[in-house]
Nucleic acid binder design. Structure first.
Lengths: 217, 217
DNA sequence: CTATTTTATGAACAAATGTTCATTTTTAAA
DNA sequence: TTTAAAAATGAACATTTGTTCATAAAATAG
């Protein structure tokens, strides 16, 4: 499981701290924050509850730390340090790669847990809403809408409202991701939803692209 | 809910029972089920906690009753007893009316509370998932997909995968509904999202309709 | 190895919570 | 008005829960 590297990078303490976070996230995702007790967390990592208080002031601080980590989670760093100019010219391939990222994240345990935590707490926790809004919505939707604008100027896609396009592109992905989470909870097959990720890209691109054939007439 | 007979209408007892449900729903939606205490509910309706136990066996039964009522909620009865044949010929008007229903429901207090409760508990409560799946997903998505199929045969819209269309049509509505809920929590303006409901219909219909003009060439 | 710091333990605590129940109050029926 | 049923109250209860703290064990530095 854990290795002691020669130069003692992970100073044992921070190792435990991360284990607490990892365990808590898993439990919060399944039972919700409020219903998860400090004893649950400690029990799941084979330790007494009082041990946790050497690493976190209290239960709230565990949640707050997890929320803070959301900003570096994969959902919110889709376009990180990517150049808009460069993205535009990819056309449909860019959309396909975003959809694939969403699909893969649906099946990544860590990310799935973050997603569930987010969805369960977002209605009660203003800070989560802030992060969701600033990092997911602003960052991704606004940025993609900029990319669409560029595509319009390059006559890759039909001219229309770029912000609408970005919303219309993301919202089904978001929805399908939730469907996958729900199906997995009941151990049902996800295959029909999984295929939707690609179908969405095809359907969407077909509807916005400028058909070179057509422009000949 | 339950009727005594023709003669005694609100029999006081059932009045209180409904007040408990109404108050609980409001609180569950804001704080979540687990974080809402029996004292919270009683306090909000100006009564002592022990009084609730004359109407419900325990706290769980309150939640279960609310969940049971979900099936008669407006989200899940979109198409109730509507004839598919009749719906098809409405074309875009049908989609517009569905979108409007979603939009209006976002601003109906009762429905908003149900939506929040659903979203917060759906990851923990299998019964909610069942109802969501059977009544929202199966009933609405499947039914709309049938309508799309009819539209294709009548050459109102282009031929494609009807189930995909239904998913692509509903998921943005679902997403925008959530956005409205979140914005209202922070008392932010919802106008930009509200306009999305109609824009979505326009964008979507434009992409699936068969353009009579075009078919002349 | 020894000393010092960090981490874990066991026990305990106060507060919060769901629930019960005997009793009183209110409502509805006669 | 009298009476029976329904609903509300006050007080108590057993648990659960978050948190503290003195002490013991373990890790780290000198």
């Amino acid at each position: 499981m854990n290795d002691e590297s020669v130069t003692s990078l992970p100073t044992k303490g921070s190792k435990t701290k991360e284990k607490i976070l990892k365990t808590s996230l898993k439990l919060f995702a399944v039972k919700g924050y409020k219903a998860t007790t400090v004893r649950d967390i400690a029990g799941a990592m084979g330790v007494k509850q009082s041990a946790l208080y050497n690493h976190f002031k209290n239960k709230d601080e565990i949640l707050e730390t997890l929320i803070g980590n959301l900003t570096s989670s994969a959902i919110v760093t889709l376009f990180e340090d990517k150049d808009p100019q460069e993205l535009q010219i990819q056309g449909k391939a860019l959309l396909a790669s975003i959809a694939t990222t969403f699909k893969l994240l649906s099946f990544d345990g860590q990310n799935e847990a973050l997603y569930k935590l987010l969805m369960q707490e977002i209605f009660r926790n203003e800070r989560i809403r802030e992060i969701y809004n600033e990092h997911f919505y602003q960052e991704n939707v606004k940025k993609l809408s900029g990319v669409f604008f560029g595509m319009m100027q390059n006559e890759l896609i039909e001219s229309s409202d770029p912000l609408l396009l970005a919303n219309e592109f993301f919202s089904p992905l978001f929805f399908y991701q939730m469907q996958v989470s729900l199906l997995k909870l009941d151990k049902k097959s996800t295959s029909s939803v999984v295929s939707m990720f690609e179908k969405h890209v095809d359907f969407f691109w077909e509807n916005i692209k400028i058909d070179k054939q057509e422009s000949l007439f």
